[in-house]
Amino acid sequence: MTKDRLSASRRLDVALALVAQADYSAALEVAKAAVDADNDWDEAHFALGDIYERVGETGNAINAFRHYLVLDPGDRMGAEVRLTLLGAATLRDRLPPDYVRALFDDYAPRFESSLRDRLSYRGPELLFEAIRPQLPHMLRPLDVLDLGCGTGLVAEVFAGYVDAMDGIDLSPRMIGRARAKGLYRNLVAGDITDMPDGIAAEYSLVIAADVLNYLGDLAPALRAARARMRTGALMVFSLEHGDAFPFDLGPGQRFRHHQRAIGEWLTECGFDLVSDTLGVLRQEKGNPVEGRIILARACNAVNILAGDIPNDLIPPMDQGSASGSTVH
């Protein structure tokens, strides 16, 4: 660490402490001093942009975030997301993978306590409720792929009902936490839109709990999942509900998806919709976050039309299929 970087680091620590105390005016002055001490430090520019945004100086916030991106084009801190929410960047079809990886690597040690204790997160439970009626009819062996497995919360809910479970996640530190639970057959650090070789080819169930929210365009992930599923297999996933077609970026820095777009992506990628249920995924700043619990069946359109798939490979559709019923 250079002398300037050391000085900048000390000042930035003070600035962040002042932010934690909501003393934004004082934090702004100290953050400016940190940038002055080392103008090439990307983190200082990002912190400065964040503080400018908090005090309502949008133009200065935009300039600081853009300066950060010059220094870190990989955008591990998510400046482009902030610029998008400020109306200064074009909405992309996914969050930067480097940002998501860094976010969850940092989040891993406190991930479960934060979700369960502070946010009342129950995504895995809602997904299990959606799949429970189908369990007696599902393809065997019941091998499961957990997309964006995180620390293994899905495995804790599903493990006793399936034959084997594999997981994939961008974050190596989250994978490490999941591995310690001993509930997965195989765990791989990788991108769910481009499945690595360590992922098997014929799953009977694919689960994606609170992970597709980090993608705008769902087609690449759904297509990649379908390629690893047996015909007649099921996929169950959660999404945050949105009113903008096909998607928008919410203030929580996650994508929200329109119901009609979801249906179009499913058809395009080789799925039939089985059910679409509304539910409260978690609390955020004291408010419920409404989401959709989607259950879909991997199909082969040509074979289905020809009647070539045996009935015992096609799980029965709920009477309330795609009805938009609500669970709490």
Rank of each mutant, 00 (worst) to 15 (best):
D163F: 03
A130R: 08
G182W: 12
R173L: 02
V144N: 01
D143P: 00
M165E: 05
F158H: 02
D166E: 08
M165F: 12
N186S: 13
I175V: 15
G182K: 10
I168E: 04
R122P: 00
A159D: 11
L183E: 04
A178H: 03
V188H: 11
R132W: 07
L183A: 04
L126W: 08
L147Q: 05
M165Y: 05
A164C: 03
A189M: 06
P141S: 06
R185E: 03
E129W: 14
L126M: 11
G123E: 10
G152C: 10
K181A: 06
I175T: 05
L147F: 12
L119I: 08
P133R: 05
A178P: 02
A159T: 12
V162D: 00
S120L: 14
A178S: 03
G160R: 14
D163K: 04
I168M: 05
Y161K: 12
R118K: 14
P124G: 10
M174Q: 07
P133W: 12
L135T: 13
R122A: 14
A164P: 01
I168H: 03
D166V: 07
R140A: 15
P133L: 09
L127M: 12
G176R: 08
V188N: 00
Q134W: 04
S171W: 01
I131P: 00
L147H: 08
R177Q: 13
L153C: 05
M138L: 15
D146F: 12
F128R: 15
L183Q: 10
E156V: 09
Y184T: 09
E156P: 01
N186L: 03
V188S: 11
M165L: 11
A159K: 14
G182V: 11
Q134S: 14
C149F: 14
D117M: 12
P172L: 06
L153F: 07
R140D: 00
R116A: 14
D143T: 14
R116Q: 15
C149K: 04
R179S: 06
P133E: 01
L170C: 04
A155P: 01
M165A: 06
A180P: 00
L142S: 00
G148L: 08
P136E: 09
A180M: 07
V188Q: 07
L170S: 05
S171G: 02
G160I: 11
P133K: 07
P141Q: 05
L127G: 08
V154E: 02
A180W: 08
S114N: 15
A130G: 14
H137L: 02
G182H: 11
P124D: 09
R118W: 01
G123I: 03
R173S: 01
S120A: 15
V144P: 00
L183M: 12
E129D: 15
G152K: 06
L127F: 13
